[in-house]
Structure formats: C-alpha cells, structure tokens
C-alpha cells in the first residue's frame, strides 16, 4: 500500500501531506523565534541601559540585506510559478538566483560579523551583543539550511521533474513557504536589532 495524498490533496482537508507538515513545522519555528524575541523583551526591559542598535550596527548593510532577502522571496515564488506553467529551465534559473541571493545574504552577514570581531565586539561584550549574535546566528543557520535545499533542487533534485513534475512543483512550493518564513523573521529582526 502506498502512502496517500503525497501529490493529490485529501478531499476533506484539501491539503497534501507535505503542505500541512511544513505549516506545522513553521508553527514550531514561530515558537522558537518567539521564545528568543520574548527573551529579548525580558532582558531589555530589565536592563539598566540598552544601546540603540544603529549606534553599534550598520543600518545600510542591514537594509541592503533586507532587500536581498525580500528579492529572494519573490524569486522563489517565480520559480514555483514557472514550474506551475510547465517551464523547468526558467524554474531552475529562479531557483539558482534564489540560492545566489541567499549566498549574498550570508556573505554580507559574514562581513558584518567580521567587522564586529575586528572592533573587539564579541557576544560576551554585552547582553545586546549576545542576543544580536544569537538571533542573527540562528537566522543565518536557517538561511544556510534553505540554501542547501535549493542547491539540491537545482541539481540532483530536479531529476524528479521528468517522472513527477507535479510532485516536484509541490516541493518547490513547500521549500518556498519555509524560505518566506525565514524572510519574515528577518523582517522583524531588522528593526528590532538595528533600528530600535
């Protein structure tokens, strides 16, 4: 017997398994980042003096990174739309662009970390630096995870298109949902850490 509803949605829920699965996973991710945001608030409220992010961190760099991530969100959705319209080569091109945008984000992040280290700003410097490195580091790991998945779907994973194009399109939609969530977290991280 085969596991049902991997490609066709179950009639009464209207969903395929992986779609429900990824949303549940994202719900748990909300709780993970939520706990860190909650800790941020608690630490900040109880602190004696909390620095304004822009006095320590570079706002232009972070704004650039925000644009990069938002752009990668639109490219992943374009990849899905292209596949939905049956165009594999265009879809793969967009997947590759998304991957490269992710890579750009990580490189900028690495540069940012590096300048901080050069100025002697390590996580042990203050609670602000600690939460900054923890939040952006964890977010960076999520970006990295997404990039690995995109690399897989651009390369060996794309073989699936030949046998099961619909299944492959669904997979891109699912990883897209994850990627948008990573983008969404950054949308909050940016003002919280850099601007306030």
């Amino acid at each position: 017997m085969l596991i049902p509803y991997t490609v066709k949605p179950r009639p009464d829920t209207g969903l395929i398994n992986s779609k429900l699965g990824i949303w549940l996973f994202l719900a748990s991710e909300v709780m993970l980042f939520g706990a860190l945001f909650s800790s941020y608030i608690l630490l900040r409220v109880n602190s004696v003096d909390w620095p304004v992010g822009s006095t320590i961190l570079s706002v232009p760099i972070a704004a650039f990174n925000t644009v990069v991530l938002i752009s990668s969100s639109i490219t992943v959705i374009m990849a899905w739309a292209s596949l939905k319209m049956g165009n594999l080569s265009k879809g793969r091109m967009y997947i590759l662009i998304t991957f490269l945008l992710g890579l750009t984000f990580m490189c900028v992040k690495a540069y940012e970390y590096n300048t901080k280290f050069h100025h002697g700003l390590f996580p042990s410097e203050s609670t602000f630096m600690a939460i900054y490195f923890t939040l952006t580091g964890l977010h960076g790991l999520h970006v990295l995870g997404g990039m690995i998945v995109f690399a897989y779907f651009w390369g060996p994973g794309a073989k699936m298109w030949k046998t099961e194009p619909e299944h492959f399109t669904n997979r891109i939609e699912i990883v897209g949902l994850y990627w948008h969530f990573v983008d969404l977290v950054w949308i909050f991280l940016f003002p919280v850490l850099y601007l306030l």
């Binding site: 829920t13 209207g14 549940l24 909300v30 709780m31 706990a35 945001f37 909650s38």
Partner: peptide, 19 residues
C-alpha cells in the same frame, strides 16, 4: 485551507502565552 488557519490559530494562542 481552513485546517491551516486552525493550526496557525493554535500556534498564535501559544505564542501569545509565550509573549
């Protein structure tokens, strides 16, 4: 689909608890 809304509603409630 509705099921996704329900799932997110539960998560939202617990998220409020967390906040």
């Amino acid at each position: 689909k509705k099921l996704i809304y329900y799932t997110l509603l539960i998560a939202a409630l617990f998220f409020i608890g967390l906040m």
